[in-house]
Amino acid sequence: MPLLEIRDLHVAFPKGKKTEVEALRGVNLTLEKGERLGVVGESGAGKSMLAFAILNLIADPGRVSQGSITFHGENLLDLSERDIRSIRGNRISMIFQDPMVTLNPVLSIGTQMIETLKAHRRISDKEARKLCIEKLREVAIPSAESRLEAYPHELSGGLRQRVVIAIALLTDPELIIADEPTTALDVTIQAEIMALILKLCREKDVALLLITHDLGVVAEVTQRLMIMYAGLCVETGQTRGIIDAPQHPYTYGLLKALPQKVGRGARLYQIPGSMPPITALPSGCAYHPRCDRATDVCRSQIPPLENGRACFHPLNVPEAT
C-alpha cells in the first residue's frame, strides 16, 4: 500500500451564483514511503492547491468536489476536523515559502517548538526542551540551546527556514510537504536548505512532496516528477527520465527555455503566450493554443494521462520493443 494515494482529485471554486470553476481537474498521484516527488508548474497551475487539499486546508468557498486522498489506507477527506488535526503537523508536516510569515513573530522559537510538540504528544516541558534542542542541532543551527530564547526577527532568513524545518521534524513525520521552501531565499541559502532537506529525508526515510517552479531544484532533490498545467498533471515519471527526454511539449518547452540549456548569447527558446486562467480554459488540451504540435484532436478532446504523459502528439517516445 502506498503512503499517499490521490485519485481523481477535483477542487472547485464558485463563480457567480450557480457555476463553479475547477482549480484541480482530476489529479492522480501516488507516493511511496521515503519517496521524494517534485510537483512543478507555473503560478496558477494548481500545485499549491494540491498541497492544501491533502492537508484539508482549502479555504471556503473552495471545496474538494470529487476524488479521494488516501493516507495509510484512510481517506483524509472523510475525517473530522479533530481527526485531521492529529495527522496535520504530526504525521504530515509542512514547510511553506516564507519563514517570516510561517513563524509567529511575537513568540520565541522555543515557545513555538514546544507548543507544536505538546499539541501532539504528552510530554513534560523539560523533555520537550531537550527534544527541541536536539532537532535544532539536527538542522545545523549554531548554538542551538541559546536560540530557543530567540525571536524570529533575530534570525537570518536561512536560519529561520532551518527553524521551520526543525519544527516540521519534531513529530517524526512520515511525509513532509514543502511548498516553494526556498523561493524567498538567496541562492546560496537555497543550496544550504535544499541540501539539508535532502539529507534529512534520506537519513530518516521521510517522504517528500516538493512543490516548486524550479526544474533545477527538482533535478537535484527528487526521484519522481509531476508536471502540472492548468489544473492537470500533463507529465509524470522518473525525474531523470523526464529531464533527459521530456515527452510533453510543455515540459520540453520549459526545459528548453532555461538559459543553461543554450550556448552563451544564443536566442532562448520561448513558449508563446501564457497559461490560461482557470476561468477561461480553452477547449480540449489546455496547452494547445501555445503548442506547435497541436492538431484538431487537441482542440476538441482532453488528452488522457497515459504512459506518463497527457498528450496526443508526444515527443521522445521510446520505441516499442
Binding site: 543550496a191 535532502l198 526544474l215 533535478a219 537535484e220 543553461q260
Partner: peptide
Amino acid sequence: DAIPKLEGGSFD
C-alpha cells in the same frame, strides 16, 4: 556552486 543543476548531484 549554489546553482541547482539539471544534471543533479550538487546538493548531496
